[in-house]
Write a protein that binds this DNA or RNA. Structure first.
Length: 571
RNA sequence: GGCGGGGUAGCUCAGUGGUAGAGCAGCGGACUCAUAAGCCGUUGGUCGGGAGUUCAAAUCUCCCCCCCGCUACCA
């Protein structure tokens, strides 16, 4: 059977890698925090594995269901479908613009997803991992809807704070139960909520507690905050959770007599990873035409499955989703969940609801995707919250991309073309020691840089590649080809030949992070095809090749950008 | 409150037992091919505080202080 990804391999093996990325909630545009937290790391990881010749399937989709979508629709006097559709399209444009290379970006609003969810629901019910039970919840009679705890406000029974939310008091920090609030009122209508009994399906999470704990404790290499947080949760003990709600917008329950209830998003959305893989396999996007191809990623024991999410999503991916998978059976559990922490905006937490957000589509109107990808990778919140500042963006763009890397390419190509009839010069039969050492340096970098990408230590990978660019600049300064070309042409020829080869290696090393400009470098070196298809290795630059005229890879940004963006943020 | 992450040079951060590191900023220098970019040298830290283990601790243990997040019927 032909493989969906037939890129060359460097080590003779090809592994199925599922790159599963958080499902954005379709109630607003994406901001740079989303890009840094999930989409860019996922894409960098996926592109690296494609270069390695692995079969990558990268999927996600819009989360179309949920109370906020419904509420927003009512505010705007439109339908949840219309809200979801608007932002789904925005997401697709954003991904295209930033080069986020999904194999499929679908949504939870598909028949396929409904079928997959209902299949899982029924099997878990059949296996006694679900049960029906009655519970008492708050109901808003004015809008005729049961209220999530968050949508109830009232006086905190512990501290007397008058605007406590149903789930937690912002004043004293206590965790609350909405039915305990004094003078409760609905945030949807200001009506006084009433208690009503309602029946729901519960997922028996408690049944998976021990298995989950054993599984997580066996995981090596997980980020400390992900692993420790999960273990802590499991040691405290899981409680069963209702997975249905009294709603009409969502996946219907596949049983008679539940027309006014829906399967709730937190159970249903994570299933999207599986339904998206199935949708992809059955679609024209799958070059093999084999609708069962999804099994390569979900059932093969050699496959790797990686989930790129923000830290607020950790419990759903390290506890609930694995529990569902265990209950259903015969499906791979997550290999790793490299959740990122938060990206703050000049010190403040990025938030869709509050201001101070850099919107992803907006930023792309003023800046190129690669500098954004570079900065958001270099400053990614991998181990702790990190801060986005325009000052740092401008500095990294100017000092690192323009001055160190872009200028390296530009200066080498310019000197070469001017002095060697626009061709790659012929090196001597025997390279000097320093030339051999530099070529070895770039070739050997593929090892550790690759390992860093595999371990989702993207900042480390980026630094590993950029150090090679520094070494190349040092080499050039030491050998001064612009001087030697006048007195010892062979010496300069060797220098430039080696430098061009190092640049070729760097284009590949940086391609996962900088796909647009790496391809540009590829073209400037007169290589054929795509850098990605050349594999995870340096592609030799051949003497005698005619080189096209270079043009700058990156634009230098003026410091005034910092004030302009600050003014924009303040609006 | 509980749990988790973090507190290392002016700034952003790397570094999990063996004589404190990078980039930027600052200072000095040589060069001039290149988007006035690149290169060399250099100033600068009692590694949050305290105690302990060890021949040796930023790195392990305990206590304390500070910042951030999570606390699952919001996703």
């Amino acid at each position: 059977m032909p493989q969906p990804d037939d890129a060359p391999r460097t080590d003779g093996t090809s592994t199925a890698i599922l790159v599963a990325v958080a499902w954005p909630y379709a109630n607003n545009h994406l901001h740079v925090g989303h890009l840094a937290g999930a989409y860019i790391p996922a894409d960098v990881f996926a592109r690296y594995h494609r270069m390695r010749g692995n079969r990558v399937l990268m999927v996600s989709g819009s989360d179309s269901h949920g109370t906020p979508v419904t509420v927003r629709a009512e505010e705007e006097g439109t339908t949840p479908e219309a809200i979801f559709q608007r932002y789904h399209e925005s997401f697709l444009r954003t991904f295209e613009g930033y080069g986020i290379s999904f194999d499929l970006f679908t949504s939870t609003d598909t028949e396929n997803h409904r079928d997959v969810v209902q299949d899982i629901f029924l099997r878990l019910l059949e296996r006694d991992y679900m049960y029906e039970a009655e519970q008492e919840l708050l109901y808003d009679p004015k809008v005729a809807r049961f209220l999530p705890d968050r949508y109830v406000e009232g006086t905190c029974p512990k501290c007397g704070y008058e605007s406590a939310r149903g789930d937690q008091c912002d004043n004293c920090g206590s965790t609350l139960d909405a039915v305990d609030l004094i003078n409760p009122r609905s945030r949807l209508s200001d009506a006084t909520p009433e208690r009503r009994k309602t029946s729901h399906f519960f997922l028996k999470l408690s049944a998976f507690n021990d298995r989950l704990l054993e599984w997580v404790e066996s995981k090596e290499g997980w980020r400390p905050h992900v692993k420790n947080f999960t273990i802590g949760m499991l040691k405290e003990g899981l409680h069963d959770r209702a997975i249905t709600r009294d709603l009409t917008w969502g996946v219907p329950i596949p049983l008679e007599g539940y027309d006014d209830k829906r399967i709730y998003v937190w159970f249903e959305a994570v299933i999207g990873y599986l339904s998206a893989a199935k949708e992809w396999a059955a679609s024209d996007l799958n070059p093999t035409g084999d609708a069962e191809a999804w099994r390569d990623w979900w059932q093969s024991p050699e496959a790797g499955t990686y989930y790129f999410i923000g830290k607020d999503n950790v419990p759903f991916h390290t506890v609930i989703w694995p529990a569902i998978l265990m209950g259903y059976g015969d499906l791979n559990l997550p290999t790793d969940v490299p959740a990122n922490q938060y990206l703050t905006m000049s010190g403040a937490k990025a938030s869709k609801s509050r201001g101070g957000v850099v919107w992803a589509p907006d930023a792309l109107e003023r800046y190129d995707p690669d500098p954004m990808r570079y900065y958001l990778t270099a400053a990614a919140p991998e181990t702790s919250d990190s801060d986005f500042t325009w000052d740092e963006f401008v500095r990294r763009n100017n000092d690192e991309l323009v001055a160190r890397w872009g200028n390296l390419v530009n200066r080498v190509l310019t000197i070469t073309r001017r002095n060697f009839e626009e061709r790659v010069p012929e090196p001597p039969a025997q390279l000097s020691e320093e030339s051999t050492a530099l070529l070895a340096r770039v070739d050997e970098a593929f090892g550790p840089v690759g390992e860093s990408f595999e371990g989702v230590q993207l900042r480390r990978a980026l630094n590993g590649a950029m150090e090679v660019a520094t070494a190349a600049n040092q080499y050039l300064d030491a050998r001064q080809p612009w001087v030697r070309v006048k007195e010892d042409r062979d010496h300069a020829a060797e220098t430039l030949f080696v430098a061009l080869n190092v640049i070729s290696g760097l284009a590949s090393l940086l391609n996962p992070i900088l796909p647009f400009t790496s391809q540009k470098v590829w073209t400037l070196l007169a290589h054929d095809g795509e850098v990605q298809a050349a594999g995870w290795q340096r592609t030799p630059v051949v003497a005698g090749t005619t080189l096209p005229a270079p043009e700058p890879l990156f634009k230098k940004l003026d410091d005034s950008v910092v004030e302009e963006e600050a003014a924009r943020l303040a609006r």
